[in-house]
Nucleic acid binder design. Structure first.
Lengths: 235, 235
DNA sequence: CGTACCATTGAGTTGCCTCAAACCTAGTGG
DNA sequence: CCACTAGGTTTGAGGCAACTCAATGGTACG
């Protein structure tokens, strides 16, 4: 974690990314820009740990962060990812609870820190911002509920297929249909909620079924339609 | 579902129950009272179905509602319960999405309906209410995340024990340590995320281990300490 | 007193996990 | 430049928790 020489201004950042901050007035943005801090984080760095008391939240300018909870045996369960424009840790600030996840960098990142007081002031004075943030939270809650259903009822095979498709929607493919996020097999397993070996076996099954192609951590989408079918996402 | 002759007023209701509405002014309560509707629902009745477009949300005055999602094979996954003072369906109103769960009555209920417009007006004009609702949502999100971890990593045995303890905290015990909510074995299974038969087998194991006592659907807590231990909730 | 729903028990199967060993790859330092 | 190491990946074998299917038993209610 390093201080930055040239901090990205909130103005350009908000213009660039779709975010809850779109609702802010010019003055509010200026003040935010003044109050925020910004740091560089390398892969493997932590932003905060589960159980931490949060006196502010983070906004990702660049890079990818994983948010996970740690189980009794030390195994991680990835809850979600955050990338450019996404905010992290606001849940704890707003609920007044400790952080319910750990945030760790997956791809080198530039992340701003916004103090809790700024968030509270915005919540109080800008109903539109309040509403946008509320919307964000409600969406996340809906996704969490959906994930509960999946993990409770779907097979690992279906879940893996679904996760791949979800990753595709979140991080896009390049011109060769290759997924633009690089995860270890273990991270994939921690996302699906299964053992690393299971992910490996299923991935190579998917490969021999010609659903995907593999090259190291690169995953290429070959037959998305059939992938959707194996994910059992017919509705 | 029946219209009520004597509708409970929001004033008495708010005084009685701890709820997000505690933040409302006298005038706001009066207006809410005027705009809301109220109905009686019998066990088995539906308030709304997954996928429904919500033009308002519900506030439970009495009774118990289960909120669940339905999987591909028709199996339910219970997401949460709602009882006196709890609100339902607000997530969909705020996110502008369809209902992500179905709401069905478990114990005969009296439930008020509050139009979306009222909610939006309160959100806009009362920052304190906004904040309280935000807090509620964030708490729920935290719980959902915790549930994802549990369901992904814990054994069915551990989860069942944990769910029993959670039910205890939510619905309390009577003077004989008997859980004050009556669920079918299937509902318990749909909550834990397992098969009905598994719940039955584990419950009778818990019973022969003297952790609980059973009498039909009544569950009596005998040895809570050891139940906590079998739930693996040491932290 | 039949019917419908729920609960229980048994038996058989399997998806997925665990453990263990081997292999690959990239980075490091002599 | 190559050996060495560490971290990640792959494959195999074996075991078991939990599921499915099926049959029976209980209980409540009209």
């Amino acid at each position: 974690m390093k201080r930055l020489h040239s901090i990205p201004t909130c103005e350009e950042c908000i213009l660039e990314h779709i975010s809850v901050f779109k609702t802010l007035s010019r003055e509010e943005i200026e003040q935010l820009n003044y109050e925020k801090g910004c740091n560089i984080y390398k892969r493997g760095n932590y932003l905060f740990h589960e159980g931490a008391h949060m006196n502010g939240f983070y906004c990702v300018h660049k890079g990818i962060i994983k948010l996970f909870k740690t189980g009794t045996e030390g195994k991680e369960q990835i809850i979600r990812f955050a990338q450019k424009g996404d905010i992290i840790g606001y849940r704890s600030v707003l609920s007044g609870e400790q952080a319910c996840t750990t945030a760790r960098v997956i791809e080198d990142a530039i992340v701003c820190f916004i103090p809790a007081s700024s968030l509270m002031r915005l919540m109080k004075n800008n109903a539109e911002f309040s509403m946008a943030l509320m919307k964000r939270t409600c969406k996340e809650l809906g996704e969490a509920n959906k994930f509960i259903l999946d993990i409770a009822q779907k097979t690992v095979r279906e879940r893996l297929a679904e996760i791949l498709l979800l990753l595709k929607d979140t991080f896009d493919l390049d011109e060769d249909n290759i997924l633009q996020i690089s995860l270890t097999r273990e991270e994939l397993a921690n996302l699906v909620g299964t053992a690393t070996e299971s992910v490996i076996r299923l991935l190579s099954e998917f490969k021999s079924d010609n659903l995907i192609a593999l090259k190291g951590r690169k995953i290429k989408f070959v037959d998305e339609k059939r992938l959707i079918r194996t994910a059992n996402m017919l509705r």
